[in-house]
Simulated scan of single mutants.
Amino acid sequence: MADQLTIRETAAPAVGVRVPSANIYAPQWRNFVFVAPFLFFFTTLLIFPLFWGMWLSVHKADTFSTGRFVGLDNYVRLFHDKVFLQSVWNTFYFVLLTVPTLALIGLFLALCLNRRTRTAAVLRTLFFSSSVLSVTIVTLIWRIVYIPNVGLLSTIYGWFGATAPAFISDPSLAMIGIAIATIWWCIGLPMMLFLSALQQIPQDIYEAAALDNANRWQTLRSITLPSIKRTFILVIIIQIVLQFQLFGQAWLMTRGGPNNLTKPIVLYIYDTAFRRWDLGMGAAASEMLFVLILIAAMAQYLVTRNKGDQA
C-alpha cells in the first residue's frame, strides 16, 4: 500500500508546477508531406530541365549522345544564324502587336461588361469561350476565315466590291493575321482579370464621386485606373510571357513562312532541335528565349512601377 502511494506521488505533478505543452506554432516536419508532391513536380518539370538545358547549350549534343564540351560555340553559331535573328525580330514584332492590344481591349470589355445584368453575363461568357479552345481549333477557324475568294473575310469584302487582304500569303500581313487570331483566342483572360479587379473597388468611392458631380472620364481617370494599376501590370507581364512562346499558331497557319517572316523563336527551336537534330544549338536558343522573356517582363514591371510611384 505504501509503495502504491509513493508511485502516485512520484507520477503526479507538483501543485503550482507548469507542465510543458507542445508548441502549436513550432515547425513540424510531417507538414512537408503536404508540399512534397508540388516540390517533386516543380523540381523535375521546371528546375531540372532549366539546368539541363544550360548544360546542353554548352555541348555538341544530338538525340543519341551529349557529345563534347564546346563552351559558347553554340551561342556564337546562333548569333551568326540569320534565321535565328529573323525569328527574334518576328517574336518581338508579334509581342508588340498582341500584348498592348490584349491589355487595352481586355480593359475596354471589362469596363463595358462590369454590369449585373443577364446580357452582360451572356457577353462575358461569349468573349471568354474562345479561351477554352485548343490552338488547333483556333487556327482551323481562322484559316477558314482567311481562305482566298471563298473564306468569310473574302465574302464580307465581296459585299462591298473589295478584295480581302491575303493575311496568310502576303509577307507584310502574315504576322498581323496570326496576331488577330491570337487576340481573338486570348482576350478572355485579360477581360476576366480586369473584371475581377473592377469588382473589388468599393462602391462608396463612386458614390462620393457622384456627389461631387464627377463625370465618367474623371471617375475613370481618378478612381478606376489607379485602383486596377497592379492588375494592369499583372496582365501585361502574363501576356508578355505567354506571347513570347508563340508556336502553335505560326506552325499551323503559315509553317513559319513566307520566307521565315512568321517563324518565332520557339518554332526555330523546334526546327533546330527536333528536325535538324542539333540539340545543343536548340538548347542555346531556348536559353536565349528564357533571358529575353525575363528581361522584357522585368523591364515592363520596373517601368510601370516607377511611373506609378511618380504619379
Rank of each mutant, 00 (worst) to 15 (best):
M1D: 15
D3W: 10
Q4W: 06
E9F: 00
V17L: 14
A22T: 14
Y25H: 13
P27N: 04
P27L: 05
Q28N: 15
Q28L: 08
N31I: 12
F34E: 06
V35F: 09
V35R: 04
F38L: 13
F40C: 07
T44W: 08
L45A: 11
L45K: 06
L45W: 07
L45M: 06
I47A: 11
F51S: 10
W52R: 12
H59P: 03
K60C: 01
D62L: 04
F64M: 14
S65R: 14
S65I: 11
G67S: 04
L72N: 03
N74I: 00
N74Q: 08
N74C: 01
N74D: 01
H80E: 13
V88R: 06
W89I: 14
N90L: 01
Y93P: 07
Y93M: 09
V95R: 07
T101K: 00
L102A: 14
I105A: 13
G106S: 09
L111T: 03
C112G: 08
R118C: 06
A120C: 03
A120T: 07
R124Q: 12
T125A: 10
F127R: 09
S129C: 05
S130W: 05
S131F: 05
S131G: 03
S131T: 09
T136W: 05
I137R: 02
I144N: 05
P148Y: 14
P148D: 13
L152M: 10
L152V: 12
L153Y: 00
T155C: 08
I156Y: 03
W159A: 12
A164G: 03
I168Y: 07
A179K: 02
A181R: 00
I183R: 04
C186P: 02
I187N: 02
M191R: 00
L193A: 10
L193V: 01
L195K: 01
A197E: 13
Q200R: 12
I201Q: 11
I201V: 13
I201E: 08
D204E: 15
Y206A: 10
D212M: 09
N213E: 12
N215E: 07
R216E: 15
S222T: 13
I228L: 06
K229F: 05
R230C: 10
L234N: 05
I237R: 01
I238F: 08
Q239D: 15
I240M: 11
L242H: 13
L242V: 15
Q243M: 13
Q245E: 15
Q245N: 14
L246Y: 10
W251D: 15
M253A: 05
T254P: 01
G257L: 09
N259P: 02
T262Y: 06
L267Y: 13
I269L: 09
Y270T: 11
D271S: 11
T272F: 01
A273R: 01
A273W: 00
R276A: 10
W277G: 10
G280E: 09
M281L: 10
G282M: 07
A284M: 05
A284G: 02
A285Q: 08
S286M: 08
S286F: 00
L289S: 03
L289Q: 08
L289C: 05
I293V: 14
I293F: 04
L294S: 14
M298G: 04
Q300S: 05
Y301N: 04
L302A: 08
K307A: 12
K307D: 13
G308Y: 05
